[in-house]
């Protein structure tokens, strides 16, 4: 099991589109994927779970991955956050 901390960079936060991308990406890996925020732990392969985090720009989240491909998964998911889900120029 590995954990990493990330900050939401894209201006509009993790709304429907970034959440779709996140869940879809996580779904490609076998590892279990959870996000911790404000004492909650949600299954991050669940799009509704991710949305209810209501993670806005600047929010700090802890990512938890557990499984045989956890390293690759973490790398890809961190890249998504880093790139702001390709939505850095959204108002």
């Amino acid at each position: 099991m590995i954990k990493r901390s990330v900050v939401v960079k894209n201006p509009s936060g993790i709304h429907a589109r970034p959440a779709s991308i996140l869940v879809k990406t996580a779904g490609r890996f076998k590892s279990e994927f959870f996000i911790h925020s404000h004492g909650y732990r949600i299954n991050a392969k669940s799009i509704l779970g991710v949305l209810t985090l209501a993670a806005e720009q600047g929010a700090r989240l802890e990512l938890e991955l557990d499984g045989e491909d956890e390293k690759d998964a973490m790398e890809e998911i961190l890249t998504l956050f880093e790139d702001g889900f390709g939505m850095m120029d959204e108002e």
Binding site: A16, S20, N43, S46, L48
Partner: peptide, 16 residues
């Protein structure tokens, strides 16, 4: 297309 993609993900949401 993005909205429909969202619908699809909700319909497959494992927790839900």
């Amino acid at each position: 297309a993005a909205i429909l993609e969202f619908h699809k993900e909700v319909l497959r949401d494992p927790m839900l």
